[in-house]
Each structure stands twice: as structure tokens, then as C-alpha cells.
Nucleic acid binder design. Structure first.
Lengths: 354, 354
DNA sequence: TTGAAAGCGGTACCAC
DNA sequence: GTGGTACCGCTTTCAA
């Protein structure tokens, strides 16, 4: 061995602060008796360069011995990108669902070795603005903007300085890439199941008229299914309620009091269904014998534990999060997964109420 | 104005790639007619340097006009730290609670202008190892390790290369900083409330004997309260059940069948309480008239919607997440918030079942 | 009060 | 195949 090894010092041969200096590629290089760039090539499994197996092994050994860890900030600074994606959401924990979206996003990111920088904003515009600014400062590759229920949104300024993916929301009159749930298909599916079971008079306990897709599109789906089956749409069977148990209770009571009572109730969500159960029980009727009940949302804690367990339509939260990130990563890696709103199906969850 | 402005080029006067080059401090400096370092001083509100108000204004104006954004990677590289904290959890969405912990952490981080790099591991050791490695590569200032239910854990290798805070978990026989729920106080509190209501025979539907704090400590709390009130601990009143509705149903039925039936039931969790409700109803008894019921966990979807609404003990999930991060940040900022397990109280949530 | 300059730890091009 | 080196954008002395 020649003594040249000792000359392999960083360009700045200057005195470094003593004490525990973090291990750098230079340290690894010195130990492996190669140049710092060789270490870089080895660690990045660079294909543009052929490294002798022996050299490679020496480098990897040195990495292990020294406990070297790459500095992602340095790498990012130089290369201009970062393997980090920003995740802006209006609610991490308002419902169990919010977590599912992050989970899906997390899994998809992990598959491609990406990390998520998560910010919760509670829809506060100023917080959103600052959150986006911070994410941008950290040079995230892209940002996912996600909401806890399907709705139109206005994006915070600056967010479009990087690729953006909307999850569970959309910007009206803009054709931004988004992943949402297919409420219409969900509404249709729920109704079709009831029709298949032989029901002809299907009540629909719906939410107050709002511009929310969950309201308008589920109703459309209901009408679609009715139409497809050659069944008439009867306004009397559609009852607007507050979207909770009290609403479901009152609404079901009203519908059940009619001259020709419906044999099935399609409920706007599981809480409404829970209320409907109460009303049905109170009338001395049974589920599903006298009245079939279909929920929406698949709130596990409610749906699976009602008696009988509630058949319902699930929202694809996990899938939306997963798909949002994976579309984004495809797009970043050159693919043209492009823009456009992608609607993910709402699957039917069979239990015992229809 | 002299023509010197045009000479203010980055040290590397070399040709830069054309096209949309991101705005740097140099661009701002040139525009404001100051040096790059002055821009840095202004933006960091450096106290070691006095900047003339006029200069300051010019710099800020240039920043606005150019839409400049700090590059956190460059800053981090140079300064050696990062305003980012790693958050490793075994479950983002297994229960609604997991989200509460992240939310608390997020809020605390946000208050101090920190970002959270979140990784979900599902407790898979290999994933945990890699997650920690990635976080360390990103030079997070610290890592929070969090679990969805209170339990002992083994930390992934390497995690202690930065300050660590355990949330909702602990490492046996190690005095690491941790924030957990005070199960014993919770158990005692639940029992005390029942005692205050005049109950003397209080049944306890508990989980199978495990080393979990939730099991052992809630029972201790129950005994504590009994002891404090001079009430005897009667083993017959303690019934081990599976911690779900079925268990609660069976357990309550058994306890209610005894010669001297208890007038109150303290349930291991809300699901058990839900099952107990069913059993009580089936025996023709009422809550709380004939039998008072106390839950644990405060699963909102269950507790608030049972009839009557369930009085229960809440776990301080949000608080644990919040406290975990804030202790960590105090510690990083020089404070000696130090090590030690911190137990956060489980508050009593009064509804209508006791 | 402001500017010059030395790096922070990698990446990647270029030469040998 | 390997090494030399310029440079990513910012922080922070040190001089002026």
C-alpha cells in the first residue's frame, strides 16, 4: 500500500469541527481507498458506469463499517429533486375515513420509496397557504390535496408550482388531475341490488339539496337504476332528511306511514340507516323481512354492528389515496397519466339488511 | 445607479441552463442591489446583524416580485438541521384514534413551524428499519415512534441516532422519553364515578390477562378506587371477556345472573359496553335505572349513539401526539424536558349511562 | 451596515 | 473503470 491514501482529503482540507462529525462519502472513500465519486456511483448503482466488483465490495464494506448514511438534503440540492411528496389535507382525523386516504397514499408512496410530508389544515386558507409554502421550500416533487368528503375546492395559491393531484375533491371548471369516488355508480349499485332482491317500491332518504356530489349523484344513480329496470321514479318515495340518525329516524317514520309503504329504504349514509332501523323497529317491522335497508359509506363501527348488520356501499378511501399518489408518481416518472378526473367505484358491501 | 449591479453574479459566472431556473437568493440580491448574504440576513431576521430598514425593504420587495422561495434543502445542508420530524407509526388508520395522535402531533409541530414526515409500518420490522433509515437520510431532527394501542415495543435499530419520543408505547426496562395514557387513573376514575353515584357492587368486565397496561392497570385502578372507598374487592364481580360486543354481552349476562347482581358495570371498552347494553336489555333491565354502565375509550361513534348515550373514559390520543412533539421540540431547543415516561390523564366523559 | 468567500455533502460530467 | 472537479443554494464567519 502506498501512502497516497492519506492524501485523499476533501477539497477543503481545512480543519473540521472535532467531535462527532457525521460520516460522509469522503470518509467512506478514504476507507475503501477510492474516490468520493466512486462511492457515489456504487451507492446509486449507477448504470452509466461499470464498477469492478472488488471495488464495489470494498465500498460497501466501508459503508457498513462506518455506518454511513446518505444525506438526502445534499443529494436533493444537487440533483434538484427529492423523493418527497407533500400531502395537504383538511382533516386527518375528523372521520375514520381520512386516515384511510393517508394510508393508501402512504402505501403507494412507500412502494416507490417516497416519503410523505403531511400537513393538516382544517380548511383554513391561511394555514393552507403557509403549508404549501413550506412544502415548496422543501422542494417536494408534487402535492396531493385531499379532503375528507367529496367536494369542490379552491386551491391555495402557489400549489401549482409543482404537479398537483386532487383526492376526494375537484376544482369546478378546471380539468386538474383528480381521483374521486363515483357517487353515481354507488347510488345506482345500491338501488340495483335492492331491485334484484325484488323490491319495486324503494324509498330514498337523501340529504338536503346541496351541490355536493354525494347528494346529487347518488340520487342520479338511484334514478338511473330505476329507469334501467323500467321502474317509475316516484318523488313521494324520496325524502330529504338531515344526514344523521335523527334524520333517518324521522324520515323512515314518514315514509313508512305512507299509504303504500316502501319495502326497501336506500339511506344516504349509515347513520341515516341506523336511524331508520330504530323507526322500523318502532313500527313493529323487521329488517330485512319487512323492510330492506341499504346504507352508504360503510362506517364499519356502525354498519358491522347493527342488528342485523347493515349492507351498504363503501367509499374507496384507501384506493383514492393510493391511486392519487401512484398516478402522481407515474406522471413524474415521465408517464403521461395526465389530467382528468378519475372516478373510483364504490363497492357494495353485503351484510344482512337487504 | 452605477453599473456595478450587473457584475453581481454568482461565483460561478458560468452559463446556466436556460429555461425556467428557480429563483435563488442571488437573483433576489441582484434585483435588490445587495449581496446574497444580505438577503440571507434579511430573510432570517438575523439578530447578529443590523440591516438598514431601506435595504431590508428593497430585499423584501425583490423577494415578492420574484416570487422567491427559500430552498430548505440547501439551508438544511449548510446549517445541519431541518425543521422536520419523523413520525413512525404502526397504524395510521386501524382505529379512528390513530388519526387523533397524528393530528395532535401535527398541530404541535405546526405551532413551531415544523413539518412531519409520516411513515406507516404496520409493525413490520423490516419496514420499520427502512423507514428509520430513510428518515435519517433526510436528517430529521427527531423521531416520534407511535403505536395505536398502549403497549411495550422494541425500537428499530438506528432510531436512536436522533432524539426519540415514544407515544402510546414504551420500551420495558429502558427509561426513554415517552408519553402514554394513565390507564390506572382511568380505571380508578371510572370506578370512583360509579361509587359516587352510590353503587356498592360494581362489576368489571375486563380483557383477558395480558401484559398490556390497559388490562393490568385499569384493574389496578378499579381496586384502588374500591380500596379508597372502603369497599371490598370481590373476585366474583370481575369477569374476563373477549374485548368486543360478544364478550360484553356474554360477560354481562353472566354477572347479571349472579345471586346478588351488580348495580353497575365497568366495561373494559365501549364495545364491551355495547354488548352489555344488549344483555341488560334482554334481562328486561334498564340503563342506568337498574344497571349503570361505564365504558372506556370513548369511541364516539359507539358511545355517543347508544341509547342511552354511554358515559365513558376517553384516551388522550390527541394530547399524547401533541405532547410528544412538543416535549421533543422543547428538548431540541435546549430545554431538558428530558427522559421519563409521562402519563396523561384519561378524562371522564359524562353522558347518560351512569 | 454590507460584501466576499468558504464550505455543507452529494451528483454527474469529463478526462485519463 | 476510476478520479478530478465544478456546482446545487444557502449559512455564517471575517473583512471592509
Amino acid at each position: 500500500m502506498s501512502g497516497t491514501t492519506d492524501d485523499r482529503l476533501p477539497p477543503d482540507g481545512a480543519v473540521r469541527p472535532r467531535g462527532e462529525r457525521p460520516v460522509t462519502m469522503w470518509d467512506v472513500a478514504r476507507r475503501a481507498n477510492v474516490s468520493q465519486s466512486t462511492v457515489s456511483f456504487v451507492l446509486n448503482e449507477s448504470t452509466s458506469v461499470r464498477i469492478a466488483p472488488a471495488t464495489r465490495e470494498r465500498v460497501l464494506a466501508a459503508v457498513r463499517e462506518l455506518g454511513y448514511r446518505r444525506n438526502a438534503m445534499a443529494a436533493g440540492l444537487r440533483s434538484g429533486t427529492s423523493a418527497v411528496i407533500g400531502f395537504v389535507t383538511d382533516a386527518i382525523a375528523t372521520t375514520p375515513f381520512a386516515g384511510q386516504v393517508i394510508l393508501g397514499a402512504q402505501d403507494a408512496a412507500w412502494d416507490k420509496r417516497h416519503l410523505l410530508l403531511v400537513v393538516n389544515t382544517e380548511s383554513a386558507p391561511e394555514v393552507e397557504r403557509q403549508a404549501v409554502a413550506m412544502l415548496l421550500e422543501h422542494r417536494v416533487r408534487a402535492i396531493v390535496y385531499s379532503t375528507w368528503y367529496h367536494r369542490p375546492v379552491t386551491l391555495p395559491a402557489g400549489i401549482d408550482e409543482v404537479p398537483v393531484m386532487l383526492v376526494n375533491c375537484f376544482v369546478p371548471d378546471a380539468d386538474l388531475p383528480a381521483v374521486v369516488s363515483d357517487e353515481r355508480q354507488g347510488g345506482r349499485c345500491a338501488t340495483e341490488v335492492l331491485i334484484e332482491r325484488g323490491h319495486r317500491r324503494i324509498g330514498f332518504l337523501t340529504d338536503a339539496e346541496t351541490a355536493a356530489p354525494a347528494t346529487t349523484e347518488r340520487l342520479e344513480g338511484y334514478r338511473d337504476a330505476l329507469g334501467d329496470a323500467g321502474l317509475p321514479f316516484e318523488p313521494d318515495l324520496v325524502h330529504v332528511v338531515t344526514p344523521d340518525q335523527e334524520g333517518g329516524y324521522a324520515g323512515a317514520l314518514a315514509l313508512l306511514a305512507g299509504a303504500e309503504r316502501p319495502t326497501a329504504l336506500f339511506c344516504y349514509n349509515d347513520r341515516v340507516a341506523m336511524g331508520a332501523y330504530a323507526a322500523i323497529g318502532e313500527r313493529g317491522l323487521s329488517v330485512p323481512g319487512d323492510v330492506a335497508v341499504m346504507g352508504f359509506d360503510d362506517q364499519e363501527v356502525i354498519a358491522a354492528h347493527l342488528r342485523p348488520p347493515l349492507s351498504t356501499i363503501a367509499l374507496p378511501h384507501y384506493e383514492m389515496g393510493h391511486r392519487g399518489i401512484s398516478r402522481l408518481l407515474d406522471l413524474l416518472d415521465g408517464g403521461a397519466a395526465g389530467s382528468g378526473v378519475e372516478r373510483l367505484p364504490c363497492p357494495y358491501i353485503e351484510r344482512a339488511s337487504v
